[in-house]
Nucleic acid binder design. Structure first.
Lengths: 266, 266
DNA sequence: TAGTGGTCTAGACCACTTC
DNA sequence: AAGTGGTCTAGACCACTAA
């Protein structure tokens, strides 16, 4: 026998997925359902909480509980790292990219702070540094039309970036071409990458920082950037609101019986 | 002023992340906290529910509420598709793989059912078929030591697999070398792939099928497999328990100013 | 059998939005 | 001011686990 609140949640969920309740419409009011004998207020509320955790509905005090839109996922492919966007040092490619995807550009869409910190364990390992060695951390909070979408913190070896504008302590958006441009100018041209992803529920701090609705997961992305000779020049950790992104990768099927070309083995 | 249940949740969370409460230990009993004046039973329970949704704790009726282990993520790299594992048609590579990762092999770890169904929209598009055209769907539920970890459903064009052992309606695990071996023998050698990932909360059916704890997200993976001439020979959709996997990809940083080698452009 | 967490009720009061 | 969802209480009873 399923709990009463679960049966009510199933009933309401069916209305939503069948389209009887469309995005933007409001669900029955909690007090009404109590009067209809669907259960006590606590019981009905439990059903609403469950649907909220599934990302189907959002409450709005004084107004009602509305059915949410299914947001469009922004697809992140490897072309977002295209050398043409940063190597030549102008912003044309960036702006063209923004325009093509129909997203207005605002300077406030990205904030960054740079600091010198002891390397977290994963960072130290990736850079081949002893535990606790100091690195530069460049933390960004990226927003889309005023709403935060993800954080991204890049870690650099001091000798790679010391004296460049990357470590300039004045907060503000990155300069022309971003961090890759700076590394390129310093003689460390980004050549290949490794990205490792997994998903989890956010910490309370992340939930607040990214303004996540209850029950929204995050995707944590660990990106290692190498030069052509295999030197690690950046280790970055991103925390993305899961409802906003998808990731796309294309690759050759490996064949351990043959020599591998083009893709770093490590 | 934060709600009372949230303050209690913060208090308990701090005990867990600080290590005062280690994995396997039990939290204070709900009735005790009620007696200590932390709130009514409903209030204390709300705090416990919140921590459960964050994946920190799990209730056990009659026993207590225990702090969960942080599970080890199994990393999925592209080498899992290595041609040596399926092209030569023996199971040596498979078993070696299992042994290397110290996971006992059981035939019941994978079940599959094959059926002929109208192609879902995304599948039809990927295969270049009209909406509603029929395809073969091969659905697997994969388990690790008896616990489900993910589902994986492959869709094939009928003319690619008709008459092969792939469409054999008898349920059971795939034969030697799996689906790729069959496609290879039929003259369609898998050559490259595209994988698209995103994360979301599971549907109630998925939560039951994968035995997900409340608040555990899933990662949905869409995999397109191509031959060397660009023909799509498989479109597969996987739903993975997020707490069990991470994905790893290595790639060259693209350069639109140059000719791309080795990686399919599409 | 005792002890744990899970569900449920009826009702009070608070916080926020809308009119 | 009226109406919405949010929080909280005190207490009852159920479901499951372990000794």
């Amino acid at each position: 026998m399923a709990p009463k609140w679960q049966e009510l949640a199933d009933e309401l969920r069916a209305l939503i997925v069948n389209g009887d309740l469309k995005p933007g419409q409001t669900l029955p009011q909690i007090r009404d359902l109590v009067e209809q004998g669907k259960g006590s207020k606590t019981t009905v509320q439990a059903a609403y909480k469950a649907l909220e955790a599934e990302g189907l509905i959002a409450p709005s005090r004084g107004h009602g509980t509305v059915v949410l839109e299914r947001p469009v996922l922004k697809r992140l492919g490897t072309e977002r790292y295209d050398k043409a966007k940063w190597r030549d040092g102008d912003e044309v490619a960036f702006i063209a990219d923004r325009k093509a995807s129909n997203r207005p550009y605002q300077r406030s869409d990205q904030t960054q702070t740079v600091s010198r910190v002891p390397a977290p364990a994963q960072v130290a390992e990736a850079h081949g540094l002893p535990a606790g060695a100091e690195v530069y951390a460049r933390a960004r909070l990226v927003k889309e039309q005023g709403r935060p979408t993800h954080t991204l913190t890049s870690y650099y070896r001091p000798e790679h970036v010391e004296g460049t504008r990357l470590v300039d302590p004045t907060p503000g958006p990155a300069g022309r071409g971003g961090g890759f441009r700076v590394l390129y100018e310093a003689g460390y041209e980004p050549d290949s990458m490794k990205e490792v992803l997994h998903s989890r529920m956010p910490t309370p701090q992340e939930r607040e920082l990214l303004q996540l609705r209850p029950g929204e997961p995050v995707v944590e992305l660990h990106r290692t950037t190498y030069t052509a000779d295999g030197t690690v020049i950046e280790y970055a950790i991103g925390v993305h609101a899961a409802s906003r992104f998808s990731w796309e990768y294309r690759f050759q099927i490996p064949d351990s019986a043959h020599v591998q070309k083009g893709v770093p083995q490590k």
